[in-house]
Amino acid sequence: GEVKLEIDGKLKTYLLAVFTLPYSNYRFARLYESESQVCVLDVHTKFIEHVDFIPAVFVYDNMRTVVKSFVGNEKTITDSMVNLSNYYQFRIRLCQARKGNEKGHVERSVEFVRRKAFASQYSFTSLEEAQNHLLKTLKRLNSRDHHEHKQSHIELMEKEKEKGQKVTMAPFDSADLIECLVDKYSTIVINQNHYSVPEGHVGTYVKAKVGAESIKLFIEGCLVAEHPRNWGVHQWEMNIYHYLDTFKKKKGAIAQSECLRQAPTQIKNIYNDHYIGKEKEFIELLFYIKEK
């Protein structure tokens, strides 16, 4: 489902992924900025990690990230979902088109969770704060008694857990692995967004592990950088510590740089309060912080 939230002063539509267990009516939900395949896989791993067991069957409406094609009444499941179901050993069942009675309680859950979590509060400073608010709301809802069984949803979920398949494997890795060329700005480009790489690697190829929430960069098998995934277009994710040698040679460039604008608030406050006009000492401090 979709939910409109104001994050850091900007109103934007986010995607709300919801799972509901049929017996206990226990609900799990998470916010995403995209409905891409990697996000759908990611929310499955987070749900299974959260409930700590693997349900035998997952029932889906005909989402394009689950159903690859329709030919008459025959439906083909996407390769990624087949890989996920094979990894966790659960079965996939697809609803029939225009049969709302087959998915009633989960269809209701999307509207229910959205209303309970975001009807009264929709403005947050960050997506992480919105996620925490959603988790607190779900914890409160799941602590209430089930209307029929007169036990809390959490207690009923524990009964389902006893009969479910135990999680014995590591979480499924839903990230894509791609190879990128480092450009003259010491960045790589993924989906029209730039991500900084430690300087000294211009013109070389790095491997990027592109997940739903983060991007990890590897050179010769070693992790050299990690950035939050940016779902915008033509955005720059810069780490000030990746450019210290350059700033050492061009001290005046740091004040107006994108790196300083994106630096942690404590770093910006230190510069504005104590180091304006003393860029040389500020860069020495950054070297010290990086080492320590």
Rank of each mutant, 00 (worst) to 15 (best):
L156K: 05
V182S: 02
K166C: 07
E213A: 09
F247D: 00
F247T: 00
N239V: 05
K166P: 10
Y195E: 00
Q192V: 01
E226K: 12
H234K: 09
N239L: 04
K159Q: 05
F247Y: 02
K161H: 15
E237C: 12
F247R: 01
E155T: 06
Y185R: 08
T168G: 14
I154S: 14
E160F: 05
G203A: 00
W236K: 13
K207A: 06
Q192G: 03
G221D: 05
K249I: 08
T168W: 09
T246D: 04
K248I: 00
L223E: 06
A212N: 14
V167W: 08
N193H: 11
E226V: 12
P228E: 06
G232H: 04
K251T: 05
V189Q: 14
W236T: 08
K209A: 06
T168Q: 15
G232K: 13
H201T: 08
K161V: 10
T246Q: 05
T187I: 02
L156Y: 15
C222D: 15
T187Y: 00
I154F: 14
V233I: 15
L181N: 05
E160M: 05
L244F: 11
F218D: 01
L217V: 05
T187C: 06
E162S: 13
K207M: 07
M238T: 03
N191F: 10
E179S: 07
G221V: 07
E237H: 11
K166Q: 11
L223M: 07
V197R: 06
E179Y: 15
P171F: 07
H234Q: 09
N239I: 04
Y195M: 00
K159S: 02
K166S: 09
K163L: 12
N191Y: 11
F172A: 01
W231T: 09
N191T: 11
E155S: 03
N239A: 08
E179A: 07
E213S: 10
K166M: 10
H201Q: 11
C222P: 10
N193C: 13
C180V: 03
K209M: 06
I219T: 15
G211L: 03
G203L: 02
L177A: 09
I219A: 15
E162G: 10
V233S: 14
S196G: 00
